[in-house]
Design a protein around this nucleic acid. Sequence first.
DNA 1: CACCCGTTATGACTTTTTTGCATAACGCCG
DNA 2: CGGCGTTATGCAAAAAAGTCATAACGGGTG
Lengths: 114, 114
Amino acid sequence: MQVRSKIWVEVGGEPVFGRGRRFLLEAIDKHGSITRAAREINISYRRAWSYINAMEERLGIGLVERHTGGKNGGGAVLTDEARRFLEKYALLEEGVRELVDEKFKNIFTGERDV
Amino acid sequence: MQVRSKIWVEVGGEPVFGRGRRFLLEAIDKHGSITRAAREINISYRRAWSYINAMEERLGIGLVERHTGGKNGGGAVLTDEARRFLEKYALLEEGVRELVDEKFKNIFTGERDV
DNA sequence: CACCCGTTATGACTTTTTTGCATAACGCCG
DNA sequence: CGGCGTTATGCAAAAAAGTCATAACGGGTG
């Protein structure tokens, strides 16, 4: 038995940013490509593309600058706004998971089962 | 733009307890009936029933004692184990959401947009 | 004792969401 | 001017969630 926790941001009731999307953006930053980013975090390109589109549409800002064709076939880079958003989200997550894990241990430990 | 957070317990990678299930059990306790509980929290009886079954199977303990037929057509009551679990889960959630909301306000407030 | 009632319990079907596959378009480069 | 590795989408397949219908149950009631 283990505890899990999750923090995400919504706009108009629709999710726009969470841990998965954070990893996606970070991987794009690392690889300069949506395709390779998706491969790294084990989701389909389709899904990654949908995530990015939805995020941008709902936030109303550009997060990923894309280039089709050209050197290396193209690629994608994060905008400054995406980087700022990543920073803020990191701050938001900071410490929360650790707190929850700690609480879980204190409350649920010391039993045979359950 | 608003923040949301969620804490849940898993067994073997499968969720067994979260806020929705907590509300369900509390509603069953209140009404003495799965049907009425489901109606109150706005999910189908089918779904409520599936939740209960999955929880019990994965936790390996009985949570809801069910009676078919009889007075009032039957009904359902929580077991002591279910009550204990509810208490622990409440402790686990306590304060976390408030913390996240507070952090969110501090980090994301004071902007035109985004 | 036969029927009524509201509940639990399920199977079957429908709708929605998610996932995956195939393919077009792009533009530098050798 | 064809090759390459991307981005970009439409469409089909699969999975999940939701809906509906109905059986079984057993105390209460007349």
